[in-house]
Amino acid sequence: MSLAEKYPEEIKRILAKYPPEHKRSALMPLLYLAQREKGYVDNHAMNEIAEMLEITPTEVAAMIGFYTLYHGEPAGKLRIQVCVDLPCALRGADKFLADLCANLGIEPGGTTADGLVTVEPVMCLAACDKAPVFQTQGPDGIAYHENMTVEKTMQLVEALRESGKEVK
């Protein structure tokens, strides 16, 4: 099913926000839309969006590559993006990332064997006083998890594993 078939109303609403001669401005909201279901933008969606906005698939791919919140490759259902910049590191974010990955049995950037969780190091999330902090990106959108410990995170993952849905 194409994006146009799945979300016709929403696409119309998004395109209406921008003048017709600048259709390409709708690229970013459309990428969020395309990413909603699978957690990444697949080739079909990329080509469809390119055609819709009259730009090339390369330009769409460049946008996906630039931002950390857009993904061109499939990964875990839940992406745990841990900030490892200096202030967070001073509060133990480095160790947090290493321990979390060890607990999940993956390398930083990797995905668990059951395809559920991906842990990625990212740059500053602007919540330095609440470090270790990570951002989750999943089917229900983006959320911040502040003052986390490895135990609390593993509980989150377990809950996700059981219910199949994100637990706030």
């Binding site: 090339t56 698939p57 390369t58 791919a61 590559g65 630039f66």
Partner: peptide, 21 residues
């Protein structure tokens, strides 16, 4: 007039990609 090359990633990882067929 055929933008089939673009920059991917940022910072030190910036690289050239093409995604046309």
């Amino acid at each position: 007039g055929e933008p089939v090359l673009a920059f991917d990633e940022r910072g030190r990882d910036t690289e050239i990609i093409t995604n046309s067929e």
